[in-house]
Amino acid sequence: MTQNNDKLTPAAFGKVAVLLGGRSSEREVSLMSGQGVLNALRAQGVDAHAFDPAEKDLCALKTEGFARCFIALHGRHGEDGTVQGALELLGIPYTGSGVMASSMAMDKIMTKRIWRFEGLPTPDWRMVASVADTQAAFAALGSPMIVKPAREGSTIGLTKVTSAEQCAQAYALAARYDPEVLCEEFIAGDETTCPVLGTGAAAQALPLIRIVAPDGNYDYQNKYFTDTTQYHCPSGLPPQEEEAIQRMVEKAYRTLGCRGWARADVMIRASDRKPFLLEMNTSPGMTGHSLVPMAARAQGISYEALCLQLLATATLDSAAATS
């Protein structure tokens, strides 16, 4: 599973920028992720420096001699293809997916369209543009229904709707973050997540993590700032079931054209144990509560080794196309 970094000593990486912070609604989490990555890389002798695009123009990456970037940004302008496009123009290799895969994965509606076309299971949905649309979606999808912005992360702007009266408030909250709002069928069952490392045919899923949140509410607070959410890794699922989900996630990852790393969220319907793909995160968290490092540890990869391994995958779309 681990990549061969024998030819890439810490010094060979050159001057490395850890992109953190940014201007998205996930800035606080990104600062925590970035600081963790920064500390891990420095501890292994990498010449790593914090770089916050909210405080410094990206062009400074070139003038200050950075050789590659570790993207620890989350949300808009971090994992939606925009910063990736800027780095392509600057010619500075970066971690994670390229421009197109990043932009598609950030858009939950586009992701679901692609997965549905490829025959991959994802909950039924409606794209809505008004309260009336949301109420119509509720009538079609049933209760409960999830209402969320199409291009946000970390459950920001999300509402679990259980009555038609909630539709107006749920739509208003989601639309505050994005003009495109997604209404999604709620899948009752086990909540899991599955990270993937690698690119193309070499991409492999890490062990699943089964998530048990207080009252089933895995929201922003319970993700990052409480210790009451339970994470089970090993997942405790039947091995055959876990392996089937891992293969499904690998296909979902390749279908979007992801590279380097990502993490898919999957619900397993209790009634028939059918798994459903919710979304693909192409710049996952790297905080003390984050799930990719947890799954990597279960695979025998330390946090420090994971950071170094990901840094070694930094590339450009043009380079990835010819490699």
Rank of each mutant, 00 (worst) to 15 (best):
G216T: 13
E152V: 11
I114R: 10
A60Y: 14
L8M: 15
A262W: 01
D178E: 04
A60R: 15
R269C: 07
R68C: 15
A172S: 10
H289A: 12
F186Y: 05
N5C: 13
K62H: 14
F51M: 00
D6V: 09
G260T: 08
C194S: 10
T159P: 04
A168L: 02
G34Y: 02
G22Y: 06
Q166T: 01
P121S: 01
R263W: 01
A319R: 11
D227M: 07
S235P: 00
D272L: 11
A168R: 08
T162A: 04
D57V: 13
C307S: 13
T134H: 09
D57L: 13
D107A: 02
L20Y: 12
H289V: 08
T228Y: 02
Y253I: 11
G157E: 11
S130N: 07
E242Q: 03
V83C: 02
S97G: 04
K274N: 10
L173R: 05
Y171G: 00
K56M: 14
K160Y: 03
T282P: 12
F51S: 00
M110V: 13
R254M: 09
F276T: 07
L20Q: 13
S302W: 08
C69Y: 11
R269W: 05
V131Q: 07
E26V: 15
R27G: 14
K223E: 05
K251I: 08
L291R: 04
Y303E: 12
N281R: 11
A50G: 12
K7I: 11
Y303A: 09
D52T: 13
W125L: 08
Q246H: 04
D178W: 09
G75H: 06
G96I: 01
Y171M: 00
A40L: 09
R176Q: 09
T134F: 06
L41E: 05
D57S: 14
E118S: 10
A319S: 08
M248Q: 13
L141K: 03
F66T: 02
G189K: 01
R263K: 02
V16I: 15
A174D: 06
A252G: 08
N222V: 07
H77S: 12
L90Q: 13
T2P: 15
L19K: 00
F138V: 04
A54V: 06
D6L: 10
M294Q: 09
T322V: 13
G96H: 02
G21F: 00
Y231I: 05
V212M: 14
K112T: 02
D178S: 11
A48R: 14
A298F: 10
E242W: 01
R269P: 06
H289I: 08
E26I: 15
A60G: 09
C183S: 00
R176L: 07
S25Y: 04
S24L: 07
A67G: 11
A17H: 14
P214R: 01
R113Y: 07
M280A: 01
A150N: 05
I114A: 07
P123F: 03
Y94W: 14
V18N: 13
Y231L: 10
A314F: 04
S30W: 01
L306T: 11
Y171R: 00
A264W: 01
